[in-house]
């Protein structure tokens, strides 16, 4: 058991290292033009957002549609720290994430008593409230936004924080705490009678999800020089929801895949900004018709598949867990 796990960890590190090394190489040699770099960073940030939202929506089964609100909290908090208070970037990221987590905790405590559609509407409302609050604070620029944010976010920051997010949430899910969250999704009453404090775990999932959304927001703010309340509106939340649903509720690799694919698609569609949302909607309808469980369902794509393929076994396209 221990041996197999170690082999997996080594393989994962190897693949991640290869990915990092090859892209880092391209950047250092200057072969990657800025257009590709922007999208590469956006992919990372979107993966962080999608995976953290999946923890709330897909694994814990609490339908939240205000995720961009937490991103806004992270973005504004970190930007205020670097722009107004001249604090170092790492501290700003941490503070942004913690602020988002705190807001997530405070919002989660009352709203997670609600179920299904009621919870969705409540989170939608809170997402909008967060946006409106920033519009009305002159200190952070009001509706015109906060500008002059230093351009500190690099490929390195995005890569390592994305990897950290994915590993953190994957490890969380594969622990007794993660299983507690999943059992709430499966049957809340049964979970409660198996000794699981459902409120605690719902709030925990919500807080962790908000934490990483805050981190993603901090990275976002320090790449694009300016942040405006309107960047983090309802449509932004829907974007991330689409990624989670498309990738599969309850599949981390599905979210990674969908976030990557949708970022690339929306980059390609940039010239047709008007019809981007139409194509998005069509894509969703087609997916829901032909694969309602999302690309990956609740399965994970893992390296053991490659292993099996290597040994020439033909069964199993995806392995569970």
């Amino acid at each position: 058991m221990q041996k197999i796990l170690n082999k997996r960890i080594i393989l994962t590190i190897l693949v991640l290292g290869l990915l990092y090394g090859s892209i880092q190489n391209l950047i250092v040699q200057g072969k990657l033009n800025p257009y590709y770099e922007i999208n590469l960073l956006l992919i990372g940030i979107n993966i962080m957002m999608a995976v953290s939202l999946n923890l709330i929506n897909g694994f814990t089964g609490q339908f939240s549609i205000g995720h961009a609100g937490f991103m806004a909290v992270g973005a504004y908090t970190s930007a205020v720290l670097t722009v107004k208070l001249q604090q170092p970037f790492p501290l700003a990221i941490l503070a942004g994430s913690l602020a988002a987590a705190l807001i997530g905790f405070l919002i989660g405590l009352p709203t997670l008593r609600l179920k299904g559609d009621y919870l969705a509407i409540a989170t939608l409302g809170f997402g909008e409230i967060i946006k409106v609050v920033f519009v009305n604070i002159e200190y952070v620029g009001g509706a015109s936004g906060l500008s002059g944010i230093p351009h500190i976010t690099t490929w390195n920051w995005v890569f390592f924080l994305t990897a950290f997010t994915v590993v953190f949430i994957k490890n969380f899910i594969n622990s007794t705490h993660g299983r507690a969250c999943i059992s709430i999704r499966e049957d809340e009453i049964a979970a409660e009678t198996m000794g699981i404090n459902t409120t605690k775990y719902k709030v925990m999932a919500f807080t962790i999800g908000a934490f990483f959304a805050g981190a993603a927001g901090a990275l976002y703010a320090h790449y694009f020089y300016i942040i405006q309340p309107n960047t983090f509106n309802f449509l932004k939340s829907i974007d991330y929801l689409v990624m989670v649903v498309l990738g599969g509720m309850g599949s981390i690799t599905g979210s990674v895949l969908a976030a990557t694919a949708l970022t690339i698609i929306s980059a390609l569609l940039q010239r047709f900004a008007e019809i981007r949302m139409v194509i998005y909607a069509l894509l969703l309808i087609v997916i829901m018709l032909f694969r309602p469980q999302g690309l990956m369902g609740n399965k994970e794509f893992s390296l053991s598949i490659l292993e099996r393929l290597g040994r020439g076994e033909k069964h199993g396209s995806v392995s569970s867990k």
Partner: peptide, 26 residues
Amino acid sequence: FSNLSVLDNVRIAYHTHVKYGLTSAV
């Protein structure tokens, strides 16, 4: 927990007896 494996259904019941915390899990 109908979408989980038979084994995971039983493992969840051990939840209250598990001692490792969030940090060591992650």
